[in-house]
Write a protein that binds this DNA or RNA. Structure first.
Lengths: 354, 354
DNA sequence: GAAAATTTCGTGTACGTACACAAAAATAAT
DNA sequence: ATTATTTTTGTGTACGTACACGAAATTTTC
């Protein structure tokens, strides 16, 4: 019971021979161009299916002079957080991979603290002729404007990192915020003994980004609502993100409450870690987000117990590839691609790939 | 300060034009074939460098009739465990990706319980002309024979899933067993209250595979040796892998000892889970290995607390790509590629990708 | 039923590189 | 200096697909 040795895969020529037509006709069927008799088309299609014809991408690319241009619009790396370095790296990697296939990627960066820069870049993108857009719809109102224009211009667009519901986006690639909060709660639940208390910490300047954090908090709280044992959840919002402000607020809180586990809803967990280390509160368990050098340092020292990460680099990569697969390859693209929710600890961070 | 708009990248034709030679000569220089006057070669090389010529991989591949054949030798999926389905899927995926680039992959399967099938397949591989081999060196003695023959035949080979030290393999792709045991211990340490006891369970028929499990156990034990608080570690080996045998052995053990956490060193953790569920020992925490349907079912029901996974599918994919990158692309390949050590729980398994 | 219009199909060239073969130039042998 | 030999260089075809153009077959029009 051996499969026949597969010879060189069949191409248009072989199809043409079997269907008794010329390769021109086969080509018309393959690229469903007009000008083929229905009967002939059917016959050719049958043989194509029968042979399980796979076009040779090399030859296809070589013969076609067509090129594509994709625009990417994401936040620049602020001095405050290096998070967006990772998606950008993934975007660059994808760009390199698809360059030979005629797709070019141009990156535009906006300032997270300045909506104006978002709009300016968006307009710049619209002026040029791009075949697809990948962007982070952080500012809802401004994003909706861009979306609308893309719709009328028939330019497909992909969201990265956050989603806006009810839009005709090609795909959303990003974290599953609610679920990641849920997971955090699950871990906290293991860390927690009976009667112990939890503190939820939101550290964020921008009101807009709050939405992001709230979804995680929601998932976190939902877990404990369904929990068997009752757990007291305290919470604080810290709007001044510098260390001194965080320290002041936290020391007051820890003095007045009996906190055993702290959950920080974003990557600024290292600020809290620094505080705990300096104040010597070594018995407090700490859990937060993102594989950043500052965080890893505290993970290594066991000040942070768990980091939850959602492969930011892969997000960038997948974002670009979604456009490429859809436009260039003509493949179907998943409506939403939620990233895996990784748990990073002192014992596995060395093997982690962002 | 704008870079000049990049026109279509220069090819052999442009080089030939500038050097005042034919494309044939340029071709000879590029592939450093013989038969070019030293002076001419120099002139051409200079222009190549000047233009920063990048060969068009598509065209190169299309024109070159050269093909590669890779052999893969891994265990077949036994009725006992579906583990190897995952690496095989990754191998198949990689094969599809590189097919157009002239690389073909042929898969050979051996029976984990029959060394003879390994040797027979290995010989079959050696008889044919393969350009590279990817295999799981499970049986040391038999593997060494294959390795030796590959060495004399100058065929590069890659190990998957387990490593044999001191060999001139092109690369090793697989789990970091020791470290994954370490991670398991780290998690167990969170689950454990003072004075509580742990049970390590090895369930395995084959003596040979034991080596695998022992490395994990070693990492596990090492963690607790360095631990602040003393933890009592019990251990049992179960050689009969059917449910009844496991049940008998475990019930006796749990009756006589006071076990709070069980660590199963391989994917058979679902057998233990089934036992705990049936016996109603719901307070015992359970941790084991691998993203298999049987295990996920118990993870969902919270009978299993954690599963540790090492991306078996990606292992297969990377194994094939290592051969491809090295032989076809001429790229350097990492000596060892340890997989990430993923923690899968009830709250994140839906997002997990093997 | 012939000419015109339209549909359907086949042929040729191009993409950038590899490689075989032939032509030309340079060198060696007589 | 002429022929033979070797080295160096140029030309042509092929890879599998895309696409323009023109030929053939079919349908429409009068």
């Amino acid at each position: 019971m051996k499969k026949t040795v597969e010879s060189a895969p069949a191409g248009v020529k072989e199809i043409a021979r079997r269907a008794n037509v010329s390769i021109g006709t086969v080509d018309r069927v393959l690229n469903n161009r007009t000008g083929v008799a229905a009967k002939t088309r059917e016959r050719v299609l049958e043989i194509i299916k029968e042979l399980d014809y796979q076009p040779n991408l090399m030859a296809r690319r070589l013969a076609s002079r067509r090129t594509w241009k994709f625009a990417v619009l994401i936040p620049s790396t602020s001095s405050e957080t290096g998070y967006w370095n990772a998606p950008l790296a993934g975007i660059r990697q994808a760009a390199a991979e698809i360059r030979d296939f005629g797709a070019q990627v141009e990156v535009f960066l906006f300032d997270q603290n300045d909506k104006q820069t978002f709009t300016a870049n968006a307009n710049s993108i619209l002026k040029q002729q791009f075949d697809g857009v990948l962007f982070a719809p952080m500012f809802e109102e401004e994003s909706l404007k861009l979306i609308k224009k893309c719709n009328t211009k028939q330019i497909p667009y992909v969201f990265i990192n956050s989603d806006i519901e009810g839009q005709e986006r090609l795909s959303y690639i990003g974290p599953d915020l609610y679920q990641s909060g849920h997971l955090a709660a699950h871990l906290v639940n293991y860390l927690l003994q009976d009667q112990q208390e939890v503190l939820i910490v939101n550290i964020s300047k921008e009101m807009d980004l709050h939405h992001h954090l709230l979804k995680k908090e929601e998932g976190f709280r939902a877990y404990f609502r369904n929990n068997k044992r009752p757990v007291k959840l305290n919470k604080t919002d810290i709007r001044q993100t510098d260390y001194h402000s965080v320290k002041t607020k936290l020391s007051k809180l820890l003095r007045e409450n009996n906190i055993d586990v702290i959950f920080v809803t974003n990557s600024r967990v290292h600020t809290v870690a620094r505080f705990l280390e300096e104040s010597g509160d070594v018995n407090i368990r700490l859990i937060g987000y993102d594989f950043l050098a500052e965080n890893i340092a505290f993970l290594e020292k066991s000040v942070i117990d768990f980091l939850i990460c959602q492969k930011p680099q892969e997000q960038g990569h997948k974002g670009v590839m979604a456009l490429y697969n859809y436009l260039v390859q003509g493949l179907p693209v998943e409506d939403a691609q939620h990233m895996p929710i990784d748990i990073v600890t002192r014992e596995n961070y060395r093997n982690y790939r962002n």
